[in-house]
Structures are given as C-alpha cells and as structure tokens.
Design a protein around this nucleic acid. Structure first.
Length: 1044
RNA sequence: GCAGGAGUGGCGGAAUUGGCAGACGCGCUGGUCUUAGGAGCCAGUACCGAAAGGUGUAGGGGUUCGAGUCCCCUCUCCUGCACCA
C-alpha cells in the first residue's frame, strides 16, 4: 500500500473493518508544528490512521502495520507458537528460563516502562528460540494488593471484579505488543488454585524452625525430637540451646540463666517454646500502623515515615501480628549474593538493608552511688535482646530476677569500635530505654520526663527531620568505664534508637561525628585515642577512620584492627564484653488488616493459639462479603464475615485468622508456579523444578530491591532447606531496566525573572516570538540550533532571527531536564496511542533503541519516526525490490552481512539492543541504493529483524515463500572466512595524529606496511628531515611514527 | 554524611583487552522527484578557521609512542540508605 490517498479504498484496509469513530485527537506532529488552525484532518484519513496506522498525509507507509500485527498475533495465539516444552519432550535442547517481573495489573494500564522491560526479554526469548533453546517465557498477574482494593472501595466495586477488568486490559495491551509469552502458563495470584499453594508454602514456614547449629530451616517435628532427646534445652528467655550436659559442660545450678529440660516444662510452656521457634510466628511488637490505609506495613514498605503506597503517615504502635523470621537468614542472604550475577548497586542495597555490623557488646557498671536505691539486672538483660516471644517465660525471668543481687546494675552497649573505649567520655541511652527510670536521680527526674514526653510526641518523620541539631538530657547517673574505671555521665538523647543494638551507646566524640556534635553542644570532653596512620588529625570534627591507637594505655601503638581484638580479649576475661553481630534487618511483618489478600490458613483457639488448617482444606478462600472496607481500627474486615469466621474441628470451636497476607506473598514464588502452573497435587513437580531452575535471566525495575527480591530469596531458601527446591538461589542473572523519564523539557531563565518556557509552549507562540528573548532560547533549545559567542550582524538577524539575540545575552540560561512520568505533569506516554499511531514493531524498536537497557533515559516521541522509516525501508528492500538469486561473494555487502550476523548476536546476548538495532539499520542502508536484493540477504535480514520487529519479519518471511512461522527458524550463521577482507584501510599517525590513511592487503607484512606508510605523500611533510625514533604497527589497527 | 552509578555534538547515544572519538537514530542545512510534501531518494552536519591547520570526551594533574578508556585530585548530576553506634 503505497502512493496516494485516493488509491486506498474507503472503509477497509486489508481485512480490518472500521468499527469505531475516528479519533478526535490530531496526531502529535500536527500539534507540534502548530498547524492545527489551517489544516483539518479529513475524516477518512483518521479512519485510515486507525485502520492501517497510516496517516496518509503525514507519512506514507509502505505497509499496513495494524493489519499485519493483528494477523500475526492471532496466528501465534492460535498455533501456541511460543509453548515451552516439558522436560521429557525437550530432548537435547538446552533450556532457558527468561523471566519478567510480572505486572501488578493497575487501572492505569501498561506503562512504557513495562514495554521496555517486556520487549527486552521478548527479544532474548525469540533470539534464543532461533538458537535452538527450549525457552520458558511466561507471564501472569500479581493481582492482590492495596491499590486495587482502594480503587474498588472508592468506586464502589468489588476488588475481584475490578481486578478482572484490569487483567483483561493488561493482557490485551501485552498481546498488542506482540510479546512471545507462553500463554498456556498464565497465572493469577488471586486464583484459588494459586492461592492454595501460597498458603501451603506459608504452612511450610509455620511448621519449620531455624536450626542455628546447621544454619538452616528444619521441620518442627525435628525440633520436638531434639528436645525430647534432651539434645536441646530451653533457656530462660525461651530460646532453645544446645544442652550443656550433652556438650560435656556442667549445668550451673541456681544460676538465673539456667536452662530447663523439655520434660520440666508444662504444656503451655512447651507450646510457647515451640511457637516461639517457628519461622512464621505471632508476636506483639511495635509495628508500622498506617491509619489512612487501615493496615500495618512492613519496614520495607515505609519510606521516610510514610507509606510507600499513597504516602500516608505511619505511626509505631505495639500490635500482635504475624511475623516471618527472615532475620535467621540474614547471613545467608548476604553471603549468597556473591554467587549472583546481579547489578552491584542492587547487591549493595540488599547488604545495606540487612545492615550487618560486627563488633562487641560491652557492659558498663552503673556507679551505685549515683542511683536511687540500687537496681536489678533484669532490664539490662532484657534490653540486649529482641522482645520476649513468650509472655509466660518472660514473667518467669522477671520473678527470678527479683530474687537476685540488687547491687550490680549494668548497662550493655553495642559498639563496632571497642578499640576506642579509652575515648568514651559519656554514655547515651535511647529515651525509651527501660533502664532510664531506674537510674535517673531525683533532681533530674523532671527534665528527663519532659524530654521523654517530647520525644514520644514526635512522629517518626519529625524525629528524622533535623538530624543536625542534637538534643538530650543528663540523667544524673554515672557509669564506670570497664577499661579504665573512669566515671562517665549518662545522658538520654533521641539520636540513640531503641530499635538498634541495645538501645544504648558508649559515646566516643573524638571518633564518631554524632557523638562529637553532641559533646560540643553539651560541653563534654573529647579525647582522641586513634590517630591517622599518615597525615593530620582532622580539626573540628571526629576522626572516624581506622588508624593507630594513642592515649590508650593498653593498646597504644596498635592498629585499629588489633586494638579491637585486644579490647574484647581484655574485657571478656572479666566477663565485661563479648563479640556480637548486629543487623538492621528486622523480622518481616507479614499480616495486613485488609480484605484483598490471601487469607492465612490458620485457626485460632480461645487463648489465641494458632493451628494450621489441614492441607486437605486448602485453599482457604476469601468470603464473599459486601463490606470489605477497612474498619479503621486494627480489626480486619474479614472479622465481619461471621459465617466464615467460626470453624468447628473435632468438637472444638476455632476462629479463623482474619488478617490477610501482604501483596508480596504471591510474588515470592510465582516463578516456581510457571514451571508447572496446572499441577493440583504439588506447587511444582520435582522433575520440572529440577529441569527449569534457576531463572537464567530476570529483568525488572529496581524498585523491588529490598522488597520482592529480598522476600523471594528468603522464601526460596526456606523451600531449599526443606528440600522442596534444588537451588539455593532463584534468580541467577538479574538486570534492572532503567527508568524511562518524560520528554525533555526546556526551561529558559532570565536572570531574576521567574519566566520559564518549555519547548511545547514555544511552538504555540511560533513566529511572533521574535521579541521575547526567553522564548527564543526555548526555540533554540527545542530545534537544536546552536549559536555561541558571536557578535550580531544585520545578516545574522535576517538569517536566523532572534536566536542570536539570545545567545549574545548572557543573562539568559537554558536548562534541559526531564522528569519522571506522572499524570500530574502530563508527560505520560501511552502505549495504546503509540501502537495506534506507529505500530507495535516501531514502538518495540524505539524503546530498545533509546539507549542502554539499564540506564535511565528520557522519552522522545519524535524519535520513533526514525524506526518507522527504518521499517518502511526494510519493507521496500525486501518486499518491493526484485529478488536476485545470485550470490556475489566478492561484494562488500557480503562481508558486511556476516559481520552484522556476528555483531547482532553478540549484542543481543549482552543485552545491548540499541547497538544491535544500529547494526541492522546499517545493513539495511546498504541495500537501499540497490535495484535488486539477493534472496540470501533478504532472508538473513528478516531473520535478524525477527526478535525486534516480529510482526513485520513474519509477514516478510511469508512473502519470501515460507510456509512456517520463523519463530523457530535457525538464526543465520556467519562464516569466519567471510569476515576477512582482501584489503584493509589503516590510519597512519605521526606523533599520535592521523595524517593519512593507506590501503594495504590484509596479509601484508609489517615491513611492507611500514614502508608503504612512510612513503605516503600525506605523511612525508611530517617526517621529512626529522628523525624517526620509533615505527609502530598495531596489527589491523594503525601505524604510528614517533619523530622528534 | 555513607554507598552505588554517571558526565562524550543541538538531542538520544556509539567506540573488544588503551589504538582513526562522535557509529546509528532524531533534529537541522542543501539538492532531487513532485499539483503538493510533513513521503521517498542523494549529499552535508563536533567546534574554531577562507584554507592550511588547530582544538576537542565535566575540570586539573599523571602514566604511555598513543588515554573517552588506566592512576591521583576536584566539580556536577542521578539512585539508594540515612542519627544503624
């Protein structure tokens, strides 16, 4: 279809029939050029635009992309062209598992970021199929979650109905892009057949504990066995520890910390111990409660004291919630990062989030003279640990402690720098620290209380707001530094957090900037005890690096690392210190007070004890209730489903757990379900898991760095420990596609003027803009004209208008910036519009051609036209030019073809799609000047184009006489011999500057080449009469003469 | 502040292990074909210079016959974490 508008029959194009009214929206080009006024878009052209994607007046398309794309999408669907073969059918084919982060089907529809992500993996998948791989490339819907529920509530629709509509829309959009997914494997996390297995995995967590000795998860049954056999005993804090008797150590009778045997516990205590060991457990802990969302949130979902979804304030309050013991895996989650091919930045984010720091706990005695009435050790003990898991046992500890010795009240701190102990000149407790009450002297009680109130009233956000100005109050109490028996004051300050370490620090102002700031403000002594190995001691700030100990009696002269060791050794002899590791990572808060999530497969008895629902009863489905809105209180909406709530088992009545799982539950294991999506007996068959895992390539956004990607690794490791999967890590190679920003905006600033003009504004103004300098800057920026440091002449103004005026006016500055796409900014690119106007193939090419996959880059709709031109040109060269059957081996284009085959394959394999496309364009440009194109060139070009622009490639392949789809046609092979050319061009440099290029035979000797180069007439003037000190020939690269 | 990444024409971006800086695309300029062009085709397009030639990869220094690439210092931008002891 080429030529004039009148040639095209009205009302039809190809097999497609006009169904809708023409778009009232003019094409972008018309808007940009400000021609709307004098040009009316004919209705017929609009219809054609919609039909053939062809705006006849704007661009004459060589082919009807809409018809072709529809045709092939239908073909692929009907023939299930991209089906992955099950292991037993795959024969000797190597497998490849290419995975996208499956979408959350939001109401907003597909984003160009999705298009970028899915096109990249689609290219890889299509390429690998052509290379003979058995490729698994699936997709599905991560469809539980807050946004759908909120939207549903707002619009008074059921989340299920709304989600279903969104999924249909997403599926339509993804199919319209021509993605080669295996649709037989489509999954939906809200489907009861899927939820069943999410719940099943949860029960695996519930029925397991973490064996610290072996560092892995094991079934609870194993723990019971160990306890019954007295290999393990129960410590006072409820922890299970190795039986010292079994270890060959005596039990110390009468000691507060004495362990008890399993049979010594009553049934309630036994239950408490077991429940306290589960990987999924309930605990009363301070959680992130978000009143606006009506639910609690995981730490990972809270950013700067606000909810990640919606940005609502979040407050801390203690609530009894489900937790997953991810902290048990902290070390493995860090260590195993080393085996992954992931972006370094992302690994670093996970390491930082887990936040492992190694150091020591040091005990400081509190000077009894300073405290009112002495004290008991209980709080110091308690504060070293996570909150008690079992209230019954906690009570016991307290009771036991009351009988203890009243005199040695100690304060435990965590430090990574025990080598700086001599520099500890004061101590600080978190305001919430339980010991504060006991040590505060009467004279200070009032100020301490006032300060604690003030801190408590501050939101998390306020507290973080000003981190510069330190605040705090003196308690009146003193502690004894165990290294030198020095008496140092104890403060409370909000820069010490109860949630990290022990909630107490020894302050070393000389070597910690925060302590330094505090010490300056409160006029506390600053004592340097480490000096730099070389260079000056910093002035007016702390020296935080490592160095050599000074002013530290015992450690003087020791490098920091050794001093640390020595400090721990010395103090641990007196029992005042022990090695200690701290993590920022907290256990994963796993319950939500929302309707639209997976119900827990858990029944609760009257005491609130949890029991697993029997596997045969899975899935526990969501009840159909009319009122699924959050209650605004911690009471979940499911508590309103009275019929569903009560369950009788064996004559006893239980209540169902009414919290639901967070959105992340479904995405924690979906990559496993794709392997075997219809299995009703197991979450995945062992055979298929072994065949397909691990994921070979995983592509998605970086926003899930410490959410999905951490959670999924954790679940996977649990499944691994329990023998359900065979790889320790799920995602071998991971790539983050870079964010696509909105179109570049040009802003012109006139020194003090606030005036800003964007490129779009400017074109509106058009030619009348002459008088406004700022507007002209915008025009200059927008059109790309460059004018620099030139005086103005009459002619200049005549020729190029006010552009010169501008640039000669230094008070005007132009900024080019692009911003994140957002509705409010109005810079969101819509895939539906783009596919209608340019076609899926052009859009796919464009998003890949924009720049490197991993990099952030601005959108520019204008540039898509380049890809349209390329496709049109390929069409002309392949479909419209006569096919020459001859193969001219000595033609340069023959060499180029083989170089291109090699290069494109390399570029695809290294995900450098932008470069691969450039190579294809270059090859096609070679064909453009020709009258006819040999068949082998046409076919090779079409095959190489196939992963990028599959619709057109299929159509051309068919036109070339092939009956079969090219989806599994072999990728063209290059011949090494064809890469070698008879002659080559070499640059000749003199002192590193190119002076000439010579053409020599490829097999010429170094001697011949050097003498040819030296004789070159263009080189002669540069070497004539000078001494050539060196003659360099870099094979196949260049010649360089060094002269003096 | 800490960590990770980046800085190349008017714009997006190319440049194997150090070896012709600016591939390819957009935009722009000119030509051509056209009733028309906002389609196609051809040519040009880093900067300064009439030319010869010179200068150029954020800035400064270094290593080298040769540096966008390696080393040191400085600056700017992005992303993440952020009072984590």
């Amino acid at each position: 279809m080429q030529g004039k508008l009148s040639d095209v029959p009205i009302g039809e194009a190809g097999s497609v029939v006009v169904e809708e009214e023409p778009s009232p929206r003019p094409l972008p080009e018309y808007q940009e050029r400000g021609r709307e006024q004098d040009w009316r878009l004919p209705v017929m052209t609009c219809a054609l635009t919609r039909l053939g994607g062809v705006d006849m007046m704007a661009r004459v398309m060589a082919y009807n992309f809409t018809a072709i794309e529809k045709k092939w999408q239908q073909h692929w669907r009907e023939n299930r062209s991209f089906r992955a073969l099950d292991p037993r059918d795959a024969g000797q084919m190597p497998k490849s598992y290419v995975l996208d982060m499956f979408p959350y089907p939001s109401g907003a529809g597909l984003h160009v970021g999705h298009v970028e992500n899915y096109t990249a993996t689609d290219i890889i998948s299509r390429y690998q199929r052509m290379k003979g791989f058995n490729v698994l490339h699936p997709t599905g819907w991560d469809a539980f979650g807050l946004p759908a529920e909120q939207y549903a509530i707002k619009n008074n629709r059921h989340p299920r109905e709304f989600t279903a509509a969104n999924i249909d829309n997403f599926r339509r959009q993804i199919q319209m892009m021509g993605m080669s997914y295996d649709w037989d494997r489509e999954i939906d996390t809200t489907d009861p057949n899927y939820t069943k297995w999410t719940q099943w995995i949860f029960l695996q967590l519930f029925n397991s504990y973490f064996d610290k000795t072996d560092g892995q998860a094991k079934p609870i049954a194993h723990l019971l066995n160990e306890l019954a056999n007295e290999n393990l005993v129960v410590a006072p804090d409820g922890e299970v520890v190795i039986n010292p008797v079994q270890e060959g150590m005596e039990r110390i009778s009468g000691d507060l910390r004495v362990e008890r045997l399993w049979r010594e516990l009553d049934p309630d205590e036994q239950r408490g111990v077991i429940d306290g060991q589960r990987l999924a457990y309930m605990d009363e802990v301070p959680v992130n409660w978000c009143p606006a969302l009506g639910t609690v949130l995981a730490n990972e979902e809270v950013i700067d004291g606000r909810s990640e979804v919606g940005g609502f304030p979040v407050e801390r309050r203690p609530m009894r919630q489900w937790m997953l013991r991810i902290t048990a895996y902290a070390d493995r989650l860090i260590d195993d990062l080393d085996m992954l091919h992931w972006p370094e930045s992302l690994k670093e984010m996970q390491r930082n989030w887990i936040g492992k720091s190694t150091g020591a706990q040091v005990e400081f005695e509190i000077d009894p003279a300073t405290i009112p009435g002495g004290g008991v050790d209980q709080f110091a003990q308690g504060s070293e640990r996570q909150p008690e898991r079992d209230p019954a046992l906690a009570t016991q500890v307290t009771t036991a402690a009351d009988d203890g010795d009243d005199d040695d009240l100690t304060l435990t701190v965590f430090t990574t720098r025990p080598d700086t102990l001599y520099g500890a000149t004061y101590m600080v407790l978190a305001p919430e620290h339980p010991l504060v009450d006991r040590i505060t002297t009467p004279t200070h009680r009032e100020t301490i209380e006032a300060y604690r109130k003030q801190v408590a009233a501050q939101s998390e956000r306020d507290r973080m707001a000003d981190t510069k100005e330190k605040t705090g109050v003196f308690t009146g109490a003193y502690a004894i530094n165990p290294i030198n028996d020095e008496r140092i004051p104890i403060y409370i300050a909000d820069y010490v957090l109860m949630g990290y370490g022990t909630g107490a620090i020894m302050a070393v102002p000389a070597h910690d900037q925060r302590d330094y700031d505090f010490a300056k403000k409160f006029d506390l002594p600053i004592r340097y005890v480490v000096k730099p190995v070389s260079g000056e001691m910093p002035q007016d700030r702390a020296f935080e690096s490592e160095g050599v100990a000074i002013n530290s009696a015992l450690f003087d002269g020791l490098p920091t690392a050794e001093a640390k060791e020595k400090a721990i050794d010395v103090l641990s002899r007196e029992g005042n210190a022990r090695r200690s590791v701290n993590y920022k990572l907290r256990d994963w808060l796993f319950s939500r007070q929302r309707y639209w999530g997976e119900p827990f497969p858990i029944l609760l008895d009257e005491e609130g004890n949890a029991y697993a629902v029997d596997e045969s009863e899975l899935p526990v489905t969501l009840p159909q209730i009319s009122d699924y809105k959050p209650t605004g209180t911690p009471e979940p909406p499911l508590s309103k489903a009275s019929d569903w709530l009560k369950v009788t088992r064996d004559g006893k009545t239980y209540t169902r757990e009414t919290n639901t799982m967070p959105q992340w539950a479904g995405s924690c294991w979906y990559y496993l379900r794709f392997l075997d999506p219809k299995n009703s007996d197991r979450f995945v068959s062992a055979e298929k898991e072994q065949y397909w895992m691990p994921v070979d390539l995983y592509v998605g956004g970086v926003e899930h760095a410490v959410l999905h990607l951490l959670y999924a690794r954790f679940w996977h490791k649990v499944l691994y420990d329990l023998g359900h999967v065979t790889t320790p890590e799920p995602f071998l190679r991971l790539v983050n596609q870079g964010l696509i920003l909105g179109e570049m905006e040009y802003h012109a600033f006139e020194t003090d003027d606030q005036l800003m003009v964007t490129a779009a504004d400017l074109t509106e103004v058009g030619e009348e803009a002459q008088e406004s300098g700022v507007q002209m800057v915008a025009k200059v920026a927008a059109t790309g004209q460059k004018v620099r440091g030139r005086r103005l002449s009459e002619e200049d103004v005549e020729k190029r208008g006010a552009e010169y005026v501008l640039k000669s006016n230094p008070s005007i500055r132009v900024d080019a910036r692009s911003f994140k796409m957002s509705k409010s900014r109005g810079n969101v690119a819509n895939p539906d519009d783009l596919v209608r106007d340019y076609g899926a193939d052009a859009l796919r090419l464009y998003v890949m051609y924009m720049g490197p996959l991993e990099m952030q880059k601005p959108w520019n709709t204008r540039d898509i036209v380049g890809m349209t031109r390329f496709l049109n040109s390929v069409w002309r060269n392949v479909a419209e030019k006569p096919t020459g059957e001859e193969k001219q081996l000595n033609e340069p284009v023959h060499n180029q073809l083989h170089r291109t085959i090699k290069k494109v394959a390399e570029d695809v394999e290294t995900l450098r799609f932008n470069v691969a496309i450039a190579e294809l364009i270059k090859l096609n440009n070679e064909l453009t000047g020709r009258e006819s194109v040999p068949r082998y060139l046409k076919e090779a070009l079409v095959l190489m184009l196939a992963p990028f622009a599959p619709h057109m490639a299929e159509e051309l392949w068919q036109m070339l006489g092939h009956q079969q789809s090219l989806a599994r046609e072999a990728w063209p092979r290059y011949e090494a011999a064809a890469l070698v050319e008879a002659s080559m061009e070499l640059p000749v440099q003199v002192n590193g500057k190119v002076r000439d290029r010579i053409i020599v035979a490829s097999d010429a000797t170094e001697q011949t080449i050097l003498s040819t180069a030296e004789k070159s007439t263009a080189v002669q003037p540069w070497i004539n009469g000078k001494e050539i000190k060196k003659r360099l020939y870099v094979p196949k690269k260049l010649v360089n003469f060094v002269v003096v």
